[in-house]
């Protein structure tokens, strides 16, 4: 459905000036630097997938999204989405996609939500029955009944985001691009938005590509993540792969009957130790967890043992660090 190959894009940026004198000089002359926003990005996405597109700020996430939604023309590479080249056949192509920019609104501030929906119906030339059916479905799944007739300025951020997503689905697109859909939302609204994205993906088979900084979004939604840093693709695979590849550090917490002698476990580092409790770090590449536990039970009278993997949030942070992005 989506095939991206060797995508590259660079921008020219004016150098910032400092100090009054430099500012005066820059009245006449200005220097530019070239920033490589994307380098040789390739991936393909099958219909019905939910893909989390992650990376730190400035990594090139939104540039990719902009290219894939037909806004930007890349310098190199090709991209074929449903048989279209997004930047070449803009008008024909964008009928098939929905885009939500989490930080901006497509709803009209001063009029009821339903009016915005109707305008979108006319923009996308949606047939009346289809429109009616779609709105009914959206209202039901997103619980919009009570807010459909209030002006947007009176809605909370969470309500608004639900309406935003609904608005980008009125023309039944097959692909939905979500650019930070949960930014600034409270916990309850986040859950609702995630639930909804899941539902439309399952029921209507819409392919979803979302960028986010919230790893919980990814964990709840995406079976596949694409990690990008400094314009390059760093990882493409499912979440478990990411975890097993990078999340090899496990933490073992053991509670036991009082034991004064410190324990000795090969291949594990002891983070803390008291006569009642020990916390150990184990690298699963070097040691097998069950063996570590066997050794623990040999040396101690265990009461309770818990094993924790690193949260995905930390794995990603660690990745950012490792790649120095």
């Amino acid at each position: 459905m989506i095939k991206v190959e060797g995508l590259g894009k660079s921008f020219k940026v004016a150098k910032r000036t400092e100090g009054l004198r430099q500012s005066v000089r820059s009245l006449f002359h200005r220097e530019y630097t070239t920033v490589q926003a994307l380098k040789d990005i390739s991936f393909s996405i099958e219909p019905g997938e939910i893909v989390g597109y992650i990376g730190p700020n400035g990594a090139g996430k939104s540039t990719t999204i902009k290219i894939m939604s037909g806004i930007l023309v890349p310098d190199q590479g090709s991209c074929s989405i449903m048989g279209y080249t997004p930047w070449k056949e803009r008008v024909a192509y964008v009928k098939n996609i929905g885009v939500v920019f989490g930080q901006r609104s497509q709803l009209w501030w001063d009029v009821p939500v339903i009016d915005s929906f109707e305008l979108l119906r006319d923009i996308y030339k949606v047939a009346p029955q289809d429109y009616k059916q779609n709105v009914e479905l959206l209202v039901e799944t997103l619980h919009l009944q009570d807010i459909l007739y209030s002006p947007v300025r009176q809605l909370s951020l969470g309500q608004r985001m639900r309406c935003e997503i609904a608005a980008s689905l009125i023309h039944s697109p097959q692909i939905l691009f979500l650019d930070e859909p949960t930014i600034g939302l409270d916990a309850v609204s986040k859950l609702a938005v995630r639930q909804f994205i899941k539902t439309i993906n399952k029921e209507k088979g819409i392919t979803v590509i979302l960028t986010t900084h919230d790893m919980n979004d990814i964990e709840a939604l995406a079976n596949r993540v694409i990690l990008i840093g400094r314009g390059s693709l760093l990882f493409d695979g499912n979440l478990n792969e990411l975890r097993s590849k990078f999340g090899t550090q496990k933490t073992i917490v053991a509670d036991y009957q009082q034991n004064v002698n410190p324990i000795q476990i090969p291949n594990a580092s002891i983070v803390s130790w008291t006569p009642e409790r020990a916390i150990l770090n184990v690298d699963t590449n070097k040691a097998v967890i069950s063996e570590v536990i066997t050794q623990l039970s040999d040396q101690l009278e265990l009461i309770d043992v818990s094993i924790e993997g690193k949260p995905i949030e930390e794995i990603v942070l660690q990745l950012y660090k490792e790649y120095q992005i």
Partner: peptide
């Protein structure tokens, strides 16, 4: 003044 000068 500085802001003004930025906008050459």
């Amino acid at each position: 003044l500085k802001i003004g000068l930025q906008y050459r």
